[in-house]
């Protein structure tokens, strides 16, 4: 029984004591820095270390040049692909956890959460090790190749030529795989919590009324877990869109994503105003995604009534 909220006016002293510190921190160390970036995005370099805020829109104009726009679109496409793969892989996993026995469920959840807590850099590095020229992924592929070659000899065909290791790293494939690897737990956890909340008797009712398992899944489970799916999609899509480390370490020269371009403006090109403009474009994209999702959410609510 949650009581009603207290009105701040009736409890001014405790309210002030509680509120001041977090608000102060948020303003000084978050809003002010963001505000400065925003102002910088309307500025220009006037010297090696001097930036003047002139109110120019040149930075934004430059950001819409095809070179940068294409990277932006590519980042979106990669993020969307990664999210889609995570959803396809993650949904059965979330289902399996939801319907596991009472005893196993928390441990399976923990197994999903542990990589989530492990250092991102280490996980990326571990994957890179596996996928290197002489890594186990290549060795596995080589073994399969040899097996196929041996099978051909069995049926009297010419054996295949010797296996040459393929380049698994430093390309777009590696970036997508790396992002899926990193973000899969982000997808599974919200999916699980949505499925867990789902009334299991609804599934039983659907089966009882004659629907098959697949039909039940598509017509009952997926629609009702919609909010969880949306949450999982957002939680995966947003960090994937802003990913820096994975494309930087695992990508090739053509797999740069928007975050890498932003970084270059600050660390190498030293064009802070342009970097600031790109940052804010990324943030606006984020806002658009969040707004899209809340729009979808409110429409779903209206539809339910």
């Amino acid at each position: 029984m949650a009581g009603p909220l207290q009105d701040w006016r009736q409890h001014k002293r405790p309210f002030a004591a509680i509120v001041s510190a977090p608000i102060f921190w948020l303003v000084l160390f978050f809003l002010v820095p963001m505000g400065i970036v925003w102002l910088y995005s309307f500025g220009q370099n006037v010297g090696p270390a001097a930036i003047e805020i002139t109110g120019t829109l040149d930075n934004y104009k430059r950001a819409t040049e095809w070179l940068y726009l294409s990277i932006f679109l590519k980042s979106l496409a990669v993020a969307a692909l990664v999210t889609f793969i995570c959803l396809i892989v993650g949904f059965p996993v979330a289902m399996a956890i939801t319907f596991a026995t009472e005893k196993w469920r928390p441990w399976l959840l923990l197994a999903i959460m542990l990589p989530f807590w492990t250092n991102l850099l280490i996980r990326t590095y571990a994957l890179m090790m596996l996928m290197g020229q002489n890594g186990y992924a290549n060795k596995g592929l080589g073994a399969m190749w040899d097996g196929a070659s041996w099978l051909r000899t069995l049926v009297g065909l010419q054996p295949l030529e010797a296996w040459t290791p393929v380049q698994l790293l430093y390309n777009n494939f590696a970036v997508v795989l790396g992002l899926v690897y990193v973000h899969l737990p982000f997808m599974v956890l919200p999916l699980y919590s949505a499925l867990d909340r789902l009334d299991k008797s609804l599934i039983e009712a659907s089966l009882d009324l004659g629907a098959g398992h697949f039909r039940t899944l598509m017509k009952i489970v997926v629609p009702l877990a919609g909010s969880g799916i949306a949450a999982g999609v957002m939680i995966t899509l947003i960090p994937a869109l802003g990913a820096y480390l994975t494309p930087d370490l695992m990508g090739g020269t053509d797999s740069q994503m928007i975050a890498n371009v932003i970084e270059r403006q600050f660390k190498r090109a030293n064009d802070w105003p342009f970097g600031a403009a790109l940052s804010f474009l990324l943030i606006y994209a984020m806002f658009a995604l969040v707004a899209l999702q809340s729009l979808r959410g409110s429409r779903a609510k209206v539809g339910a009534h």
């Binding site: 977090p22 608000i23 948020l26 160390f29 978050f30 809003l31 002010v32 820095p33 963001m34 400065i36 970036v37 910088y40 947003i238 960090p239 869109l241 802003g242 820096y244 975050a259 932003i262 970084e263 600050f266 802070w272 970097g275 600031a276 940052s279 804010f280 990324l282 943030i283 984020m286 969040v290």
Partner: peptide, 26 residues
């Protein structure tokens, strides 16, 4: 206030990093 409070969570890391870089330089 709730919205602003959740911003540091949803703003991409790279943007927060950039903001911190500029802030401390400034």
């Amino acid at each position: 206030v709730e919205g602003v409070m959740s911003l540091p969570i949803i703003v991409p890391e790279i943007c927060l990093g950039v903001a911190m870089l500029i802030f401390f330089a400034r």
